[in-house]
């Protein structure tokens, strides 16, 4: 097994505040790697550094052996690093079908083709349909995204990220805010993600983390606090203290 995504001494300062402090992380190929930590631990900042939404103050980000620290977000996507957002970041006016077609087009470098209508790319249409089906969206593919139930929107988030055929998929709290009755559908789809895709999961929900992940990194105050297998982390009294200290 080799590392597919690595960070080396990653630092991010906002003025005097250190949001990410010397994080060196290594995610193995095919892993289900969870990133946990109390509120304000810098999980979202770290994600933004990985995807290129933020530029690090210092340190490097390496994807499949290539240094991507200076690449803009869309080029990182093309190299196989996709993410979902904690709060839905969708195209409210699009239908799920249009959104997924868009993502596939861009992956296939068709986005600059300006002449043939969308329907004249049959492979894209078929793949989009298959993808929508896998993510439980076939029956709503023609609805406007803004009118979809929240759980469906979360699924579309994942479908969009997945359409990029990522090597590494960053899931930022995939079940956050989803009502109880839609929750099982979202979780089932997260669990069914194919094993060749490496998944980095950022999550608050410990049940989900412990049932899904095979490796866990704990972030505290922007720095890597500890890392280990699920069993190791579950048994670590310090981690328990951090969480109990926060939850109490």
């Amino acid at each position: 097994m080799s590392a597919v995504l690595q960070t080396r001494n990653l630092m991010k300062r906002f003025g005097g505040f250190v949001a990410t402090n010397d994080v060196s992380l290594s995610v193995e190929q095919g892993a289900r790697h969870a990133l946990i930590g109390p509120n304000g631990a810098g999980k979202t900042t770290l994600i933004n550094l990985l995807t290129g939404a933020l530029k690090p103050t210092s340190g490097r980000v390496i994807l499949q052996g290539e240094d991507i620290t200076d690449l803009p977000p869309h080029q990182r996507v093309r190299r196989g690093l996709a993410r979902t957002f904690q709060v839905n970041q969708l195209f409210p006016e699009f239908t799920p079908l249009e959104a997924v077609v868009l993502a596939i087009n861009e992956r296939e470098q068709l986005g600059a083709s300006a002449w043939k209508p969308l329907v004249r790319y049959p492979q894209v249409v078929d793949e989009a349909a298959a993808l929508l089906e896998r993510f439980g969206l076939s029956d709503v593919m023609g609805e406007r995204t803004s009118r979809l139930p929240y759980g469906k929107q979360r699924l579309l988030e994942m479908a969009l990220a997945f359409a990029a055929k990522p090597r590494v998929l960053l899931l930022d709290e995939p079940a956050a805010g989803v009502p109880e009755e839609e929750r099982h559908e979202v979780l089932a789809i997260v669990r069914a993600l194919p094993s060749d895709v490496t998944v980095v999961l950022i999550e608050h929900d410990m049940d989900l983390v412990f049932s899904f992940a095979d490796r866990i990194s704990v972030l505290v105050s922007g720095a890597l606090f500890t890392e280990g297998t699920v069993a190791e982390i579950a048994a670590d009294p310090r981690v328990k203290a951090i969480y109990l200290g926060e939850d109490a």
Binding site: T51, P72, F91, F94, L102, N105, E106, G111, W115, L160
Partner: peptide
């Protein structure tokens, strides 16, 4: 034809949500 093509769709995407458009790989500027 242009606005109904993949290119036109990507333009609408940039308008609808520029951040997300970048995250599905749309190079908005070009």
């Amino acid at each position: 034809r242009i606005v109904n093509s993949p290119f036109g769709l990507s333009l609408k995407a940039v308008q609808g949500n520029r951040v997300r458009a970048a995250m599905v790989g749309v190079p908005a500027k070009s």
